[in-house]
Computed example of a mutant assay.
Amino acid sequence: MGAGSWGTAFAKVLAEAGTEVTIWARRPEVAKAIDDEHRNPFYLPNAQLPPVRGTADHRVALDGADLVVLAVPSQSLRGNLAAWRDAIADDSTLLSLAKGVETGTLLRMSEVIAEVTGAASDRIAVLSGPNLAGEIAERQPAATVIACTDADRAAAVQKACATGYFRPYTNTDVIGAEIGGACKNVIALASGIAAGMGLGDNTSASIITRGLAEIIRLGVALGAQPATLAGLAGIGDLVATCTSELSRNRSFGYVLGKGGSMLEAQAATSGQVAEGVKSCTSVRALAAAHGVEMPLTNAVHQVCHSGLSVGEAVENLLGRRVKPE
């Protein structure tokens, strides 16, 4: 459910793992291209898809589906689910690819899914890891984590998407997988800003490491396992998103670091606002609600939403009192 670059790439993985796949697209022209040509020229133009169906009718896509993959942006998930819920089978597995914290409610995506659909938590799984869509579409080796409180259901999803190039692991720590996925987008914006300012590898490594410390603090406060955030769904996803030029969040931050405006950064990322721009405010609020200090996240929020210059943000971070690691 969702035909963006990652939704399309993951549909390709599922199909190549032997799973029958239908892709729902919001725009009929995208659905038609997928159905007729087995291509998505709008979001993943260089990838030839295996035989999959495309449709713009959610009822057609959801009819008889055992696995419903939710691949729409985090802030639009609630509205989409409200339109889809009556067509979702009672025992289907709901797998979230969205990475974020909902604005206003401060709910994780699995919590939004449960609230809107009424599904029990053991029906809801999340997928998170270093999964850049373009590389996976090219069958470059990658690994991911499928987290679900029901280990058997996680294993069923694992089987549905395991291929020779895509290796899924299972986990029962849904909170850890979701917090790692939501926060890494924000830290990637900081990493991109630093790169745009011309700062080097020492700075990049420091941002990634201290960013991970922030993520672990918040995750643990919410009940996550530190080991999850030391794995693929945490440091793995963080490194990929902070260092790759394929990362929309890093690319967005890079333009800001070069002195560009928010509109210029959006233009440089195919007219789409990076997920971390929206998530930084809700992640920051969630951290405040739990008494967790997240200085990098706060700095990104101030740059994106409060008019703070990138130079001032760096000065503020470096001017913080020194303390033990």
Rank of each mutant, 00 (worst) to 15 (best):
G236V: 08
A89H: 09
C242S: 15
A162Q: 13
K184Y: 08
A289Y: 05
A3K: 00
D86T: 14
R85K: 15
R39N: 06
Q266K: 06
D35V: 05
I187A: 01
T209I: 00
P141N: 11
V292E: 05
A227K: 07
D237P: 14
D237Q: 14
V186D: 01
D36S: 15
W24A: 00
A227Q: 09
T163E: 12
A265S: 15
K184D: 08
T19Q: 06
S128K: 11
H305L: 15
L44D: 00
I146P: 03
A17H: 06
L238Y: 10
A194P: 12
P295L: 09
N40T: 08
L97A: 06
K99H: 02
S204N: 06
I235D: 09
A9L: 12
D91I: 13
V157S: 02
L222M: 08
T19C: 12
V277A: 03
S110Y: 04
V112S: 10
I216Q: 11
W84L: 15
S204G: 11
F10R: 02
A177C: 15
G211E: 09
R284Y: 11
E16K: 06
G54L: 02
L222F: 04
D36G: 05
V21Q: 04
G200E: 09
Q48S: 15
G311V: 08
L218Y: 01
A89F: 03
E102H: 12
D150N: 15
